[in-house]
Design a protein around this nucleic acid. Structure first.
Lengths: 155, 155
DNA sequence: GTAGGTTCTAGAGTCTGCTCTAGGTCAAGC
DNA sequence: GCTTGACCTAGAGCAGACTCTAGAACCTAC
């Protein structure tokens, strides 16, 4: 998983269908990735057909994580372009990854704030249902019945 | 914030612009919410103009949290419809909220897994940059130079 | 009374990230 | 020889969530 030289290479020829199976991405999506410039290299062909290898799969699995954690396609493309541009821009690649890491950390924090609030609501509903007072949680109709006793702050 | 009766009501008339300011949503979005059936009541009018109150604002703030935590508009609409349908479906509302809470918890877990992997990458880049060996992290060109020594597992 | 700001409706347009279609090539197995 | 299945390209279509446009009404202040 680290960066020692040597590893995966040409022997390891994989068809697009095989790569789809290994990555969980659809064949359509793998072709679309190419059009979008998301691979780390131009995918070679045998005749017309793409020939992937296990390094491509490893990159796609990383892509899955980056996308699942909310990195936009455009930023994955930028990273791929940096790698394609060759050595010398590693600081830039690091900056991009660090920025994303920070983004994700912020999002986790934000989600946990949301969870607090949502769980609070769940709790209120649970307690009112248990107590048999759930009908007091919110009471339409909204027709103006005169006074303003009907509406509660939040349901 | 809980569910005691009484509170916010008719006196509290707010224009759409005011609500936009208080919720951070755009005026456009507030109107779109109405078309999409996301409010807990039909928003009344003074002439043509919508008249909101602070309970609407409270609901919109909750909506912000639900959306920020990934609840699709369609599900917010379902919840709003349940509330509009009046008392008697509180168990359904609770189920909806509970399901969302579980979704969000799963997503937090998933994001933390992603963070692990991303931080691992960041770490590799940092260490290689510090050691001055960053150029070994990835080495194009990809032109077939004969042997397969060029490609590493993942950049 | 007129300029400026806010609001209205209905509907079109945008952006992201896929997903599918049409029409075709190619290799293997019966 | 023919069918089947995997693959190809180019491009259209789609879902979700907004976002904006056009054209008009209305209210307040000068």
């Amino acid at each position: 998983m680290t960066t020692t030289a040597g590893g995966a290479a040409r022997h390891n020829a994989l068809s697009i269908g095989e790569v789809a199976r290994q990555t969980g991405l659809s064949v359509h999506t793998l072709r679309w990735f190419e059009r979008e410039g998301l691979y780390l290299r131009p995918i070679p062909r045998a005749g017309q057909r793409r020939v992937f290898d296990s390094a491509d799969v490893a990159w796609l699995l990383l892509c899955n994580r980056l996308r699942a954690s909310g990195m936009p396609i455009a930023e994955i493309r930028r990273f791929a372009a940096l790698v394609q541009a060759g050595p010398g821009n590693e600081a830039e690649r690091l900056a991009l990854l660090e920025a994303h890491e920070q983004e994700v950390r912020k999002r986790v924090t934000m989600l946990m704030e949301c969870l607090d609030i949502i769980h609070g609501k769940v709790d209120v509903y649970r307690r009112h249902l248990a107590a048999g007072t759930a009908d007091r949680l919110w009471a339409p109709p909204f027709a103006d019945v005169g006074a303003d006793a009907a509406r509660q702050p939040t349901p």
